[in-house]
Nucleic acid binder design. Structure first.
Lengths: 189, 189, 189, 189
DNA sequence: AATGAATGAGATTTCATTCAT
DNA sequence: AATGAATGAAATCTCATTCAT
């Protein structure tokens, strides 16, 4: 039991080190040894917890998905557009709280086609589409809202994320409100 | 003279090959030899036109910037919001016409911190901010439009691009209209 | 005392496991951990009984030598050629009874030049030469028998062993009789 | 054409170097770099001609098979037992002329189960069995010759080879005559 | 005595880059 | 200018061995 916990903890430590190193240097320029050094262990020990360098990147992606799923699961209840606003705010806050993690997703994107970033976006779009459908049923939606609106909501979030990652003077947390204003409040009937 | 033209042409051929190869396999998995093969020349010949493998990526980035600058330069005249709508449409069309090129920008992002994606976004934001300022002067802008709106416009474009790159069933060209509707028409006074 | 016996028993268990593992996968492809697993103990425990991985191979060789010496010591008495026939039969039976063990000798040969397979063959040749000398003294030997005959007797045994190890449809035990017929009976005066 | 010849020559050079290195240190202890150094080239260049370290061993085996096949193909004509004698002599001479090569076969045996030493022995046995059948048809064979005699002939050769490899004071070439005397002349009707 | 996590030396292999032809 | 064989630096990964528990 104790051993198992330790093992999980150690794995998470390594993953945390990997996130920091990958965010700092990019995955392509990061060596397994860099991750080990950041985690304070020997190179070979990384392989006791992850089968390969690529598995580290996959692990980062997994842990991002877990966080992402957690956010989607907590929009609570109330009117659909309120829930949508909470969803957008929740995702932005989650990303803002984990900049390194978010940065590494770019490497997942670029270097690991097998890690399915497409499905992450799809999942967001589906959750949002469902909320828009409910809003329409509730009569809260302006009738001229595009069928592509879910894509636009995701785009607003991810596009702001991208600009923040490129330049941290872009204030991601402050952007949550305008994103919601534009993509949620702006479509109320 | 003729030789010089040939040289430029050959360089562009190689760059085109690099774009296709990088888009297909990702930069990290692309070998100089792959690019040479795609261009129909020998590996060593690539080095007659580009100093290194990284220089190929830099070349792709440069040619993207050139295209991007060209689009920004052609918003024409008329009212500010009309020009903004043309800017957005122009960028989206340009990206849609060069999917491989756009895909490679992700690798630029992830693998080449020295290639300044941040400045690309900044340039877009500045052009858009200028147009918004003019629109405000023309009295065309709703007074409550956020100071962050330029960031949101860029986000909408880049966020849609990202989703289209991840999944080509996301219809980038069709998204131009809703993007404009939301981010340009939606802010008219 | 008891502990000492236990220790010896445990050492032999590990050696037996090593023989099975090495025979199955070859020494080069066998890991210390494989041997430990086969013996039902932890990897580190192997080192309580053997100083190194190579020592396991040396141990296998030692135990082969012990068996081999035992066979040479039991040719009993009687006429020299009868004792030679018993020697040949005894060696073949010993090998046939310990196929894994014999298989591992190939790895000793190939991987451990310090383990002296040459001396094993030499010892056989010397024992056989001595018997041939006695047979000659007893007038039992055809006068034209080659001075190299001892080498041929060893060759017949080892050569059959080799073929049996390569392909177990070669019937080693059945070959004992023809070997004796050819190399022992065939040289009677 | 010239390039092709060079390429083949270079491949053979490397293979020759591999034979020498493997014979000297054993395959297990031989590094690709050792082979490269023996061939006077850089480590990486070995990989231009052989896909892996194991491929070097496979190459050695292949070239042994080629030599072996060549010997089997040159027993000429005449009476079956004469041809058998020539076969035996030819194989022994071939082995004696290529001690390093023969030494490496032990590593093939021990380290590369996929390289089929069993088939080499089988091929020898089949060629010899065929000659024995013909000798019987020619009435040259003693009626009591064992059905296993082909195995014994192969054993005599391989067993002498083994002893010579272990100790070069065992005179392989001198042993050809006694081997033939015992295994070929000894079975004449 | 037994364990098995941790170590790190060392081997294989890749591939960007060079350069003789 | 073009080639592609050769190079060797560098990275991944393995696993024998150690040692704290």
């Amino acid at each position: 039991m104790v051993k198992s916990v330790d093992r999980i903890r150690r794995r998470e430590d390594i993953l945390g080190a990997a996130v920091r190193v990958f965010a700092r240097k990019g995955f392509a320029a990061s060596r397994v040894e860099d991750v080990a050094a950041e985690a304070g262990i020997a190179k070979g020990s990384v392989y006791l917890y992850f089968g390969s360098r690529d598995a580290l990147l996959a692990g980062v992606f997994e842990s991002y998905r877990a966080r992402s799923d957690a956010v989607l699961a907590t929009v609570g209840d109330g009117q659909a557009l309120e829930r949508l606003a909470r969803l957008v705010g929740g995702v932005v806050d989650m990303l803002a709280a984990h900049r390194d993690h978010a940065r590494v997703l770019l490497d997942v994107w670029a270097s690991a086609p097998s890690l399915d970033m497409a499905s992450v976006y799809r999942q967001y779009r589906e959750a949002i589409s469902e909320l828009l459908r409910q809003a329409r049923a509730e009569g809260e939606l302006r009738p001229d809202v595009s069928e592509h609106h879910a894509t636009l909501v995701v785009a607003a979030i991810e596009g702001c994320l991208l600009q923040w990652l490129a330049d941290d003077r872009v204030p991601l947390t402050e952007l949550a409100a305008p994103i919601i204003e534009l993509t949620v409040e702006g479509i109320r009937a």
